[in-house]
Simulated scan of single mutants.
Amino acid sequence: MSSSLLPARRRLVAATLAATALAVTLSGCGSGSGSGSGPAMPGMSGMASSAMPSANSSASASSMPSMPSMSGMGAMASGDGLAAAGSGYTLTSSTTTLPAAKASGYRFTITGPDGKPVTDFAVDQTKRLHFYAIRSDLTGFQHVHPTMAADGTWTAPLAALTSGTWRLFATFSPNTGSGKGSDFVLSRTVTVPGMAMDSALPAASASTTVDGYTVTLSGELMAGMAHPLTVTITKGGKPVADLQPYLGTYAHLTAFHAGDSAFAHLHPTTAMGGDRGGPSLAFQAELAKAGGWRLFLQFQTAGTLHTAAITVHVS
Rank of each mutant, 00 (worst) to 15 (best):
P7H: 12
R9F: 14
L12P: 01
V13L: 15
A18P: 03
A19K: 11
T25H: 12
S27D: 14
G28Y: 08
G32V: 10
G32C: 09
S37Y: 09
G46R: 14
S50I: 12
S57D: 07
S58V: 11
S58F: 10
A59I: 10
A61T: 13
S62R: 14
S62P: 05
S62T: 15
S63A: 13
M67E: 13
M67Q: 15
A77S: 09
S78R: 00
L82H: 01
S87M: 01
S87P: 00
S87V: 04
G88I: 04
A101R: 09
R107M: 05
F108R: 05
P117R: 04
V118M: 02
V118A: 05
T119R: 02
F121Y: 07
K127M: 04
R128P: 05
L129E: 01
H130S: 08
A133E: 05
I134A: 06
L138V: 03
L138F: 05
T147I: 03
T153M: 07
T155G: 06
A156G: 06
A156T: 02
L158T: 02
A160Q: 07
G164I: 01
F169Y: 15
T171Q: 05
G177V: 03
G179H: 02
L186V: 06
T189Q: 13
V190I: 06
T191G: 01
M195K: 15
M197W: 13
S199E: 06
T208K: 09
G212C: 13
V215G: 10
S218D: 12
V231P: 02
I233W: 11
K235G: 11
G236M: 12
G236E: 14
K238H: 12
P239W: 12
V240Q: 11
D242W: 08
Q244F: 03
L247W: 09
G248T: 10
A251Q: 06
L253H: 07
F256A: 08
H257L: 05
H257D: 00
H257N: 15
A264M: 11
L266R: 06
L266Q: 04
P268Y: 06
T269F: 04
M272Q: 13
P279L: 14
S280L: 08
A282Q: 10
F283A: 03
L297G: 01
F299A: 07
A302P: 05
T304L: 08
H306P: 03
T311S: 15
H313W: 09
H313R: 15
S315E: 14
